[in-house]
């Protein structure tokens, strides 16, 4: 793929077949994220039990970077405690927006490292993460 580290195979395959994609029948928390500038539009659905994120789903439309980032995120946050998830979200966010730390310790997510070098695309990578943070804080109202 020569100069294009942005579109690595992992990203392309998560775009094509995203993990944990769709709306689950039941969930305890959810949020919607929308970027009017590019039209990226995602929903995150969570089942949080005993402070653990038991299940994560996402749904929506957007570019390959945003979809792959959401897909990778759902994989990495499943079965994490809320505190662990918060810390991963913060690491990802700080790396993308402040260039602090690195993504190596976050495992597979590190394929998104290259996005940081394309300022116009950083929002694509972070939108689902913002939405996730919001979802964790937003229980479904009865």
């Amino acid at each position: 793929m020569n100069q294009n580290e942005l579109y690595q195979q992992v990203i392309l395959s998560h775009n094509k077949s995203p993990k944990n994609f769709g709306k689950p029948e039941s969930f305890t928390h959810w949020a919607e994220g929308f970027n009017p500038l590019c039209g990226d539009h995602y929903f995150i659905y969570l089942t949080i039990e005993d402070n653990v994120i038991k299940n994560v789903f996402f749904e929506g439309e957007g570019c390959a970077i945003s979809k792959a980032s959401a897909s990778l995120m759902t994989e990495s946050l499943k079965n994490k405690t809320v505190e662990e998830a918060d810390s991963i979200i913060k690491k990802f966010h700080d790396y993308m927006t402040l260039s602090e730390g690195d993504l190596k310790e976050l495992g597979k997510i590190s394929v998104l490292s290259g996005v940081k070098d394309y300022p116009a695309r950083i929002k694509c990578a972070t939108i689902s993460w913002h939405t996730m943070k919001q979802a964790i804080e937003t229980p479904v109202s009865e």
């Binding site: 100069q3 294009n4 942005l6 579109y7 009017p36 500038l37 590019c38 039209g39 570019c63 695309r121």
Partner: peptide, 26 residues
């Protein structure tokens, strides 16, 4: 099946400048 932002970034990697987005005409 391919979002315009991906098209724009990949064309840019070939030196081709196009605009992607809603063009201030939502």
């Amino acid at each position: 099946g391919i979002h315009p932002h991906d098209v724009g970034s990949l064309l840019d990697s070939k030196g081709i400048a196009v605009r992607t987005g809603h063009h201030c005409a939502q």
